[in-house]
Design a protein around this nucleic acid. Sequence first.
DNA 1: GGTGCAAAGTTAACGGGTAAATATTTGGTA
DNA 2: TACCAAATATTTACCCGTTAACTTTGCACC
Lengths: 146, 146
Amino acid sequence: MSNNQFKRGELYSVINGIASTAVARRLQKNFRNAGLEITIEQWSILYHLWKEDGLSQQELCTRTFRDKASITRLIDNIERLGLVERIASKEDRRVNLVYLTDASKPLQEATYNLANQTMNEALQGISKEEIEIVKSVFQRVYENSK
Amino acid sequence: MSNNQFKRGELYSVINGIASTAVARRLQKNFRNAGLEITIEQWSILYHLWKEDGLSQQELCTRTFRDKASITRLIDNIERLGLVERIASKEDRRVNLVYLTDASKPLQEATYNLANQTMNEALQGISKEEIEIVKSVFQRVYENSK
DNA sequence: GGTGCAAAGTTAACGGGTAAATATTTGGTA
DNA sequence: TACCAAATATTTACCCGTTAACTTTGCACC
């Protein structure tokens, strides 16, 4: 691939993730309009815990592509909201396991629906084949850049 | 488009912009390794000023897809680095025009080269046709979500 | 058993994004 | 002229991402 094949300006929006930012902002707005007072980042933690409860913070780092320090603060905030709690692992005392509380349960259905609806709106008019190409390209870009 | 055509989990990385985050992080690292002490966000402002100097803050909002408050703080920081300066518009006293200083000049060539190199590495093994599809999809996602 | 290293998590400092409230200026209009 | 609405920019408060330094714990190895 030559140095000049792609113009910087054209790819600028890709670098800055304009499209994904727009989707995230929209989803955040939909949460707020529905009276759900959580951020997208907090929701992404809950999302993984709904799939598998009791993950360690380190495991949440891996699954959400986040830093240890980010996870610490995210869990701090979600715990303050009463949606999760840290429980020290009995096997390894370095490890905190993060468990959902009962208060988190009502959020699951509502946020899933809003996320689905938001993604469907975002992907209006885009074919399944195009989605597959985007996913494939993203995977390679991620591998090339990580 | 049915509600179940796309699985949330598969699109999760798109929502969170994992790929674009990885590219941005890599570019930031390349800047730092080259001794360039500016952030990607600061660079994005300089990038637009190198194309056209003396833009208003509002115009920078539009071109960088950013909030007014973000621009205010970004310009604060870049101004503190001595790379730009605010000059009040004579036509409209509400407006600040942002001008590059001489100190910003040496950055232009170096950052352009690093940005080009970073993008080329990120896009290794990706065809021109795929790029076009991604850009087209992103444009529609952005329009659908903004 | 002590030493040293790696892993998990916390903290602080800095930069940036967003929302809401505020001030200033402009321009139109009654 | 007086008033009002819109545009530009700032400020504050809160949240998140990254880095670097640090603590605690586990483990391997001599």
